[in-house]
């Protein structure tokens, strides 16, 4: 049953992935000037002689003499078969090299934020819903509002500013200057932890705020449901009842949003790491955007979108595992 379901969902994703790649290819092509001219201009600007044979090679490799739709196929074929995402003009290296250097950190930080967000938001949401209108409910709601209203980049500046004025340490970058080029050691990890914590905290806060509100609303909704009264009428203890029925019901829709929170987290990660100059994708993608280094920008977008799609798939499968109605193909209420 579950196998069929997973297979069906995977097949549904293929057209979506194709559509995403087309949209991103269009975005890459949007700025004026094509790959080759940009390449030549850039080579000339940096004072290098333009190698004619190199141009021929590039033309062949990316199908640049072919019509646009053929260029798309060349582009996709290079990505799938060779992992070749094109060249970054600004860095004069293959995009894949930049990606392999920086993407793992971006994804790692985003996933860490996701875990932290869940770990904080769910318990607080449960507390707020079960203690509706209590003092702490109001406190959490207030913090939630602030988290929603203060954009990540502001929070990053403000917290770094306060840490800087209070301690005199500038917590930008993932490592302090002393450890920047040092080999990995415990001291380096310890040195990294507060910096990592700060990034995760900042990215997580705005996500947490939204998620607390969501969890609270869902649980409040579930607490009104008939099955809660049934369970209470059985003589079940409030606490046990709460964890067994409404909380499980309220967490389910949250699971289905894992996939959709990923883009938000990665967006947040980008902005925050730009300000904190983290060695992640954020700073270089921003520069790529400003200088219209579109292969780099587009590749990042492509990978992140694909990750989101996969994230959605995973959250759908998780949901099918925990919710028998989906697993057995029954319709939701």
């Amino acid at each position: 049953m579950l196998g069929n379901y997973i297979l069906k969902r995977c097949l549904q994703l293929i057209p979506l992935l194709i559509a995403i790649s087309i949209v991103i290819f269009v975005i890459i092509q949007l700025p004026p000037g094509d790959y080759l001219t940009t390449y030549i201009i850039q080579q000339e600007a940096s004072g290098l002689e333009v190698n004619q044979s190199n141009i021929v090679l590039l033309t062949k490799q990316y199908g640049l003499d072919k019509p646009v739709y053929m260029q798309y196929f060349y582009w996709i074929r290079n990505i799938i078969t060779k992992g070749d995402f094109g060249r970054s003009f600004q860095w004069s290296v293959p995009v894949s090299q930049l990606l392999s250097e920086r993407l793992p950190a971006t994804i790692g930080i985003s996933l860490l934020s996701l875990i932290v967000t869940w770990g904080i938001a769910i318990p607080i949401g449960i507390y707020s819903a079960t203690h509706q209108y209590s003092v702490f409910d109001y406190v959490f709601q207030f913090i939630g509002f602030i988290g929603l209203a203060v954009p990540g980049f502001l929070l990053a500046i403000i917290s770094v500013y306060f840490l800087f004025t209070l301690t005199g340490v500038s917590l930008t970058g993932l490592h302090s200057a002393a450890f920047l080029n040092a080999p990995w050691s415990w001291a380096k990890v310890v040195d990294m932890l507060p910096r990592l914590g700060l990034v995760v905290f900042i990215i997580g806060l705005s996500q947490t705020a939204g998620m607390i509100r969501q969890m609270r609303a869902m649980l409040l909704d579930e607490l009104q449901k008939q099955y809660v009264i049934t369970a209470r009428a059985k003589g079940l203890k409030e606490k046990k009842l709460l964890w067994k029925y409404p909380i499980r019901m309220a967490v389910n829709p949250m699971i289905s949003t894992i996939g959709w929170t990923l883009p938000g987290l990665i967006s947040g990660e980008m902005i925050v790491s730009i300000i904190l100059s983290m060695p992640t994708m954020g700073p270089i993608v921003r520069r790529a955007m400003i200088t219209q280094d579109m292969y780099l920008a587009g590749s990042f977008l492509l990978i992140v979108s694909c990750l989101t799609v996969i994230g959605t798939l995973i959250s759908d499968i998780l949901l099918a595992i925990v919710d028998p109605r989906i697993r057995f193909g029954g319709v939701a209420e």
């Binding site: 979506l16 996939g259 990923l262 883009p263 990665i266 967006s267 219209q292 920008a297 977008l301 989101t308």
Partner: peptide, 24 residues
Amino acid sequence: QRAIDLIMSMPSIPLWMALAAAMP
């Protein structure tokens, strides 16, 4: 519906950035 799925699976900030970057 598929267009909505498509847009929602892309992170908004980089997508905005890319579109804004492509702006003349």
